[in-house]
Write a protein that binds this DNA or RNA. Sequence first.
DNA 1: GTGATCTTGTGAATACAAGCACTAGCGTCG
DNA 2: CGACGCTAGTGCTTGTATTCACAAGATCAC
Lengths: 214, 214
Amino acid sequence: MSQRSRQIPEATVARLPVYLRSLAELVDEKTSTVSSERLAEMAGVNAAKVRKDLSYLGSYGTRGVGYDVEYLLFQMSRELGLTHDWPVAIVGAGNLGSALANYGGFTQRGFPVVAMFDSDRQKVDNLIHGVRVFHTDDLASTASKLGVGIGVIATPASAAQDAADKLVAGGVGSILNFAPTVISVPEGVSLRKVDLALELQILSFYQEHRESSE
Amino acid sequence: MSQRSRQIPEATVARLPVYLRSLAELVDEKTSTVSSERLAEMAGVNAAKVRKDLSYLGSYGTRGVGYDVEYLLFQMSRELGLTHDWPVAIVGAGNLGSALANYGGFTQRGFPVVAMFDSDRQKVDNLIHGVRVFHTDDLASTASKLGVGIGVIATPASAAQDAADKLVAGGVGSILNFAPTVISVPEGVSLRKVDLALELQILSFYQEHRESSE
DNA sequence: GTGATCTTGTGAATACAAGCACTAGCGTCG
DNA sequence: CGACGCTAGTGCTTGTATTCACAAGATCAC
Ligand SMILES: NC(=O)c1ccc[n+]([C@@H]2O[C@H](COP(=O)([O-])OP(=O)(O)OC[C@H]3O[C@@H](n4cnc5c(N)ncnc54)[C@H](O)[C@@H]3O)[C@@H](O)[C@H]2O)c1
Ligand SMILES: NC(=O)c1ccc[n+]([C@@H]2O[C@H](COP(=O)([O-])OP(=O)(O)OC[C@H]3O[C@@H](n4cnc5c(N)ncnc54)[C@H](O)[C@@H]3O)[C@@H](O)[C@H]2O)c1
């Protein structure tokens, strides 16, 4: 019984960070307890969902009172694996890659960018916001040596699968893909994507359908 | 019966752009027909799902043969509302906003950036990649005048709700939010978000849980 | 203490999505 | 021209997520 195998649903996992941010705001404004209703309002979901989501973490609330903000924040950070840093590597030192490296929000939230990689030798050994650019030939070995946990792909679409393969070879277990293409990774590696064109097209769909029914 | 009210499920809508991209690749390589299986492989989903998704658009396939690539591409573009451009406005002319404006991928896919807005008077009247920056005081009127359909929020989190309100006031029906905060919009306005920190935290969760069970 | 009032935690109901497995229709080959 | 192979379309099953609604526990006032 060493393993608490209470399996947390995917949809819940995706909401935990939103609650986390809300809790951080509450700490800032020195609120010590919060009800599921208040939290729901802040996170933009309904209260029953908040309670069910939080119940997967354990029974950290108090009936009649609510949740202790700091305690819940701590438990949630622990569950999300945010009690320690996750070194991040960015593949592709172009516009997007540089913008991401320059963005302080990463390091600040426990995701320090420890290396960048590019296939363009002109860019190798450059420093971008203090982060050194390595050649992609050395990706696997360097990522492995630096203990990179999360890889960010910011290459053109055509190079994305290759970048993913190299990251996996370097022992990276999680990949965030910004290139507008589907990439595949072996089982046991997490993959998420951020695709602007896709988001805009989804918006376009709903807008089109709304307008045509007016 | 002027309205074909075949309601397309949200999950399907979110996949259509992925199919669309696959179809565009097939056109490039001069493939004229494609089976659900091939398309499924390209889009990274299973074949039954492809068939069901496409069936919401109509019966555009031919049994025993597959789908005509160009015809399906056209029908899907039409359904997604991509047969005409959607003017986009970006609020927040900082690092992210400028990067987005500089990125050609938008205009190229039918989402021309027609205006940017910022509250910083230093930035007003600047041209960023040929796009003029307006003051946020004029947001609603300018957006309305330019017929902006989609608004992109790239301001600090604290200004995001205000930006959304102004966009809505300007008649913008769809909003893509990059600020790491929950914003609310009136019914009838579509809202999607892109949140990097959130994505990283989700990856962190799975990585943490994988490692602890090894 | 007892009753009134909160608010959590959760079983049960409902809604939504995924996937299987079969049927129907097209094309081709013998 | 009939049989066979291929592939779209879809009813049905299964799984997952959301939401409701209420019992159980906590606090407070008196
Ligand atoms: N810039 C944006 O605002 C933006 C927005 C949305 C999506 N994207 C996507 O992000 C990706 C990067 O965009 P960008 O604007 O930074 O492009 P970019 O051309 O500025 O940068 C791409 C970088 O990747 C490098 N590269 C090429 N092949 C490589 C390989 N095999 N291995 C490693 N590095 C390689 C290039 O040398 C270059 O430095 C693209 O897929 C783009 O579609 C960008
Ligand atoms: N830069 C990145 O790589 C990155 C990555 C992820 C998320 N983000 C998020 O995107 C947002 C913008 O990031 P950034 O790096 O561009 O920040 P930034 O500070 O460079 O730019 C913010 C811009 O918004 C403007 N602004 C401030 N208040 C405003 C208001 N009320 N109305 C209109 N404009 C206003 C500022 O003048 C500034 O030009 C932030 O919320 C950030 O968290 C950025």
